[in-house]
Design a binder for these strands. Structure first.
Lengths: 331, 331
DNA sequence: CTGTTAGCGCTTTCAC
DNA sequence: GTGAAAGCGCTAACAG
């Protein structure tokens, strides 16, 4: 069953396609009588305008693309949902793509979106594909980076003060557990800017006390649950396990707890401070504090930058930095 | 900066647009020499074909839409991710929309997708909009329902045996806590088929023992965290609180635990059995068992049905029913 | 106020 | 093997 066109509607209503188009877009002049008649006919025929044709002609899609590293992660989706709401309120649509933290898939996703002629791209990137992204930003499609920086890309962006928050959190742990230094660092992958910054902030807090991080208490994770589990097994099976852990994201933290459970160690045996959305976990333990990134707030900022850029392509690039909130929930 | 067209490429390569199109689609005859030359030029110019124009002409978008009630819920996103993977392997793209459990927004999302000329629609519906959905299914765009049925809509669908699993779970609780009957039912909204079925299954287990559910121990929630919290306050502040709770989804369960925490009641004070994805929670308590719905498996089935339907529009409608796995994790 | 028409970027006959 | 040209569904001058 072929879908109806504006021609079918015009025929059925006994008017020209231009008139139908005018009532469709509420543009130009059309008598009230004809307007309502045409609307009537559209209802009856269940007519649905073809967005492809419309966009092709108008050279506007009113569409924004977003590429996320993991759409099952509530942090990103909470952020994205706000973006989507705000855009929709302004007549734009948001199209989601998942890169799976994989640069090649990210590339594919971006090219797909470009083919769909999105007007702006929101990207929480893998860190790669900098050349392409730069090129896009300089050729008509606005780009807003969120959460993560991309090497060599200078555009609008919304980021967090990762180093500062990490430093604050680790300073707290050092203050509590002293210079014995048994504080473990569960880092994310070096390829991701947030991970680098969090790691750097943590080390800075240690250096401030005139010490150096003990490398046997630093684990190079990759932001996955599995790597948190591995870190746990690595640290907690030794003679002198750490007294506290600083974890760079929520997934690794869950993995760490899973490791504890598998080792038969009580979850309260060790204090944890972690970046990220950990609502579920904080319900259950008193020894976990989170560095909360406020995805809603970030989503609002992203939407604002996108809309501003869309309406004025020439404005200076803007960089918004938010400070995550260190929520000390340990009693 | 206007994006390049096939014309620009043709000009730059000194060939006709038809030839460029042929190398783009690897269709028709074109000499090896010209082919590689054109490809060279496309690379250099960073040419990105306009998918709108292509789809308009071909009357095929190779695009599938999915409308979910809550994209921050990992259950739905885990399912959707598999669908997306499988479709992509077959040359289709998946476009996500979030209805926010709101029938009006669902309608809007569906119409938007229809306008984009998706070839198939995957829907975890609010339960409303049955007429429209039926109409779609009968006019060229295939529809696959997932997780939830929609009144009056008969199409391909992938569902779970909600009643059966609920009955099994409640029977377990009754067996353990006996005919004293202090088992509370935390139900979802009647408008959603899964909620109705889970509620019905739970009641059936009770009736089997020749009893009736105590209505003061039945709470009409709405699948949100807030309603789980409300139920908790409602039940747990009375003289004889229930000994166990059966919860119809993950969000309400989290809300229930939040309520306990706010009331200062130990989380292990009451046994809970809940539907849904609760990975994080099961790490922390031993008195929570889950009825696991296996979103991956469901996603696989959805993708399979979509692809089958896309390649043979005339086949009989298919209904796949999966049995959730009751994972007794209470010791 | 309404209709005619050109053309958005692409694919696809049909000639050559 | 390659090019010319029609046309997908729609919008936006331009005429009237």
């Amino acid at each position: 069953m072929p879908s109806l066109t504006i021609k079918d509607v015009a025929q059925a209503a006994g008017v020209s396609t231009a008139t139908v188009s005018r009532v469709l877009n509420a543009s130009g002049y059309v008598s009230e009588q004809i307007r309502s008649h045409v609307q009537q006919v559209m209802k009856e025929l269940n007519y649905q305008p073809n967005a492809l044709a419309r966009s092709l002609k108008q050279e506007r899609t009113r569409t924004v693309g977003i590429v996320l590293p993991d759409m099952t992660n509530p942090y990103f989706m909470t952020m994205a949902r706000i973006v989507q709401q705000r855009l929709m309120e302004n007549g734009y649509h948001l199209i989601y793509m998942d890169s799976g933290e994989n640069p090649a898939k990210e590339l594919e996703a971006i090219e797909l979106l470009l083919g769909m002629r999105i007007e702006a791209l929101v990207l929480a990137g893998t860190g790669e594909n900098g050349e392409l992204i730069s090129h896009i930003a300089h050729s008509g499609t606005s780009v807003v980076l969120v959460d993560r920086a991309v090497d060599g890309v200078l555009t609008d962006s919304v980021v967090e003060d990762n180093a500062g928050a990490a430093e604050e959190a680790v300073a707290y742990l050092l203050g509590k557990y002293g210079t014995s230094g048994a504080i473990a660092l569960l880092n994310g992958p070096e390829s991701i800017s947030t991970a680098r910054e969090r790691s750097e902030g943590a080390r800075k807090a240690i250096r401030r006390l005139g010490m150096e991080a003990r490398e046997d208490l630093v684990f190079a994770g990759d932001y996955t649950r599995q790597s948190g589990r591995d870190a746990c097994k690595y640290w907690m099976t030794r003679d002198e396990p750490p007294q506290a852990v600083f974890s760079a994201n929520n997934e690794m933290t869950y993995g760490f707890y899973q490791g504890l459970r598998e080792l038969g160690i009580p979850l309260d045996a060790i204090e944890v401070v972690s970046f990220g959305e950990l609502d579920a976990a904080t319900l259950f333990t008193n020894r976990l504090s989170v560095i909360y990134q406020n995805p809603q707030q970030i989503g609002e900022a992203v939407a604002e930058l996108v809309l501003k850029r869309l309406e004025d392509d020439a404005r200076d690039r803007e960089r918004r930095i938010f400070s995550p909130r260190f929520e000390l929930t340990v009693r």
